[in-house]
Design a protein around this nucleic acid. Structure first.
Lengths: 157, 157
DNA sequence: GAGTCACGTAACATTAAAAGTTACATGATT
DNA sequence: AATCATGTAACTTTTAATGTTACGTGACTC
């Protein structure tokens, strides 16, 4: 499989959305994320279905946050993306009849399961608001005031 | 990327090797693993370089364990495979200049890093001997004596 | 209410990495 | 010298994300 970058991409998009008053079109977001509008729609669809985003058609339409950043955990976003396969590693054929293969597969699956739980737990403990704080810190480190210079932080504009 | 099943496949192969007195040829292992001899050679090459296996050319040659199962951890095998990418998920473009994207990527990378550490730790705590014990248990559960019925456990034969 | 904007979605092409396959060179044994 | 088995390169296949194009539908403006 190719590498799945939807999670960081969506986080990135949500941060931009939180910074905008008006709805952002798929076209605008695609520009910020260096991708295609259809990809944005496809990727964001799950977040809309989960009530994280709203989408509005027609003039002045686009994407908006449906909730404050504090109430959106990264784990929920991961779920909204369909909880895509975390691992590039597989644990072998589940239906094998060879007991040696079963032992091998079980051991692999166990390690992957533990890693998966760690991943979900880590995502659960972080909200989008935490990311926004991280962003503000990065801004401040560059000596920029968070109040009036947000747009400088975004190289896309 | 496609799913990487090398780790469970190698574990499976090592269990079979531990059960054989004579070296097993790539052809034989390929039969047990339902794959191709060239794949076996390619996959096992890293284990040979790490001193986990020895390979012998010519008549009566093939693959053998270079150490007792107790002294082979799953983590070492994973390393011997080149520590292939664990995750199907990426953490975005590392070189982005957008501070929002950096915040998003960092958060994703952090969760992946924790998961990765859990995975390696889990692999480190298990040796091939543990897998052999697991195999014996599975044999016993089927009501078979471990002493003289090993070959029944392997559906390949 | 016609035109335009923006989402919704399907269909197809592209891409990346493991895995499968084929072929042949090299070394070891008989 | 013949045969066996590894070592390795080159190429094809596979799979899921991603990129792309196209068109339908709803919503707003005039």
């Amino acid at each position: 499989m190719r590498q799945d970058n939807r999670l960081p991409r969506v986080l990135h998009a949500l941060l931009h959305l939180s910074d905008m008053k008006d709805p952002a079109t798929s076209e605008q977001l695609a520009g910020m994320l260096n991708t295609n509008a259809a990809v944005v729609r496809r990727t964001m669809a799950g977040l809309r279905d989960r009530g994280i985003l709203t989408s509005i058609k027609g003039h002045g339409g686009g994407w908006q946050l449906a909730r404050p950043l504090e109430k959106i955990t990264l784990a929920e976003i991961y779920q909204a993306l369909g909880a895509p396969t975390l691992f590039a590693l597989g644990c072998g054929d589940e239906e094998s009849q060879c007991l040696m293969e079963k032992a091998a597969n079980t051991a692999t699956a166990r390690a992957l399961q533990l890693a998966s739980e760690t991943f979900i737990t880590a995502l659960s403990s972080v909200t989008m608001a935490d990311l926004a704080v991280d962003f503000e810190k990065r801004l401040a480190e560059l000596g920029l005031s968070p109040d009036n210079l947000h747009h400088f932080a975004d190289q896309h504009h």
